[in-house]
């Protein structure tokens, strides 16, 4: 494992909203081909960490590197200089705040905790739009259909993706008319359409029953193989997490309290106190 290249490197990331430090000095590493999970109680800052990694929020402090290159960096400056509550405020000196589409272009793609499909559009169109970033046409060539070969290729690729995720029969349905579990799959398919090398899944099994969760576990393992992607996921279903993760990071109140293999995490007293105990109770 350790010989593998680093896919994603998060260094001392702090995200502060007003007086709330949602993510506090988070450092983590994801290596190529791994499935890494972030777990932790609600409000621990997991989604916020995703938002920083994918460029939705510029962090208050810290750096994110992707494929060995710094893609996001910030340090407490301006008004934040005085009100900064986190650590390592003097460690970074660059400001790099790309919009999310730039990071998607580099090969990151994500799903959302509260599904964000395009409501007025069909299943097919939802995936097809993710192919827009792969276009080579400009407004004129697209309007006059000089791009029809490319368009046909994209449509074929979308059909192929629909087959892989098992949504062929629903392709002409409105995305929001699908049952919950299928909407989650569609969101994953949409992310895959951008041809990512790193896939970030925010609670992909939320609201699923054990049967569906089992299917999803297999599905995630399968897409790692078929699409050759590295996966970082947030999840509360412990059977899923323990089953497919190579390594796990545990967040609590914005801080990293543990990381290690599933076995190590399950035996970690701190994690059991802060989180796993609670999950066991909730599942009874």
């Amino acid at each position: 494992m350790s010989e593998q290249k680093t896919k994603l490197l998060v260094e001392h990331v702090t995200m502060q909203f007003g007086g709330v430090v949602a993510v506090n000095d988070l450092s983590m590493e994801v290596r190529e081909g791994e499935i890494v999970a972030i777990i932790g109680p609600n409000g621990a800052g997991k989604t916020t960490a995703f938002n920083v990694i994918t460029g939705v929020y510029a962090p208050t402090n810290g750096r994110v590197s992707f494929d060995g290159e710094c893609v996001v960096e910030n340090y407490p400056h301006g008004k934040m200089k005085k009100s900064y509550l986190g650590a390592n405020g003097d460690m970074f000196h660059e400001i790099k705040e790309p919009t999310p589409d730039k990071l998607t272009a580099l090969g990151m793609a994500r799903t959302f905790q509260n599904i964000r499909l395009w409501k007025s559009m069909t299943v097919f169109d939802n995936i097809l739009i993710a192919k827009h970033m792969k276009r080579s046409s400009n407004l004129f060539s697209a309007a006059f259909r000089f791009n029809s070969a490319e368009e046909a290729r994209h449509r074929a690729e979308v059909m192929e993706l629909l087959r892989v995720v098992g949504l062929e029969d629903e392709k002409d349905d409105l995305a929001t008319s699908l049952p919950y579990g299928k909407q989650r799959r569609l969101e994953i398919a949409r992310a895959l359409a951008t041809e990512p090398t790193l896939l970030l899944l925010d609670e992909p099994a939320a609201g699923m029953n054990p049967q569906e969760t089992g299917d999803l576990t297999q599905f995630i393992a399968q897409i790692r193989k078929d699409f050759n992607v590295t996966i970082l996921l947030i999840e509360h279903h412990m059977d899923l997490v323990m089953d497919i993760s190579d390594r796990i990071y545990v967040l609590d109140f914005g801080r990293l309290i543990a990381h290690g293999t599933p076995d190590e995490i399950q035996r970690n007293e701190k994690v059991i106190d802060a989180y796993l105990g609670v999950v066991e109770d909730a599942e009874d």
Binding site: V56, T99, D101, A109, R116, I129, M133, T194
Partner: peptide, 10 residues
């Protein structure tokens, strides 16, 4: 938000 995440430059 979804559009931007799917690579569309807003």
């Amino acid at each position: 938000v979804a559009a931007e995440a799917m690579g569309i430059n807003l």
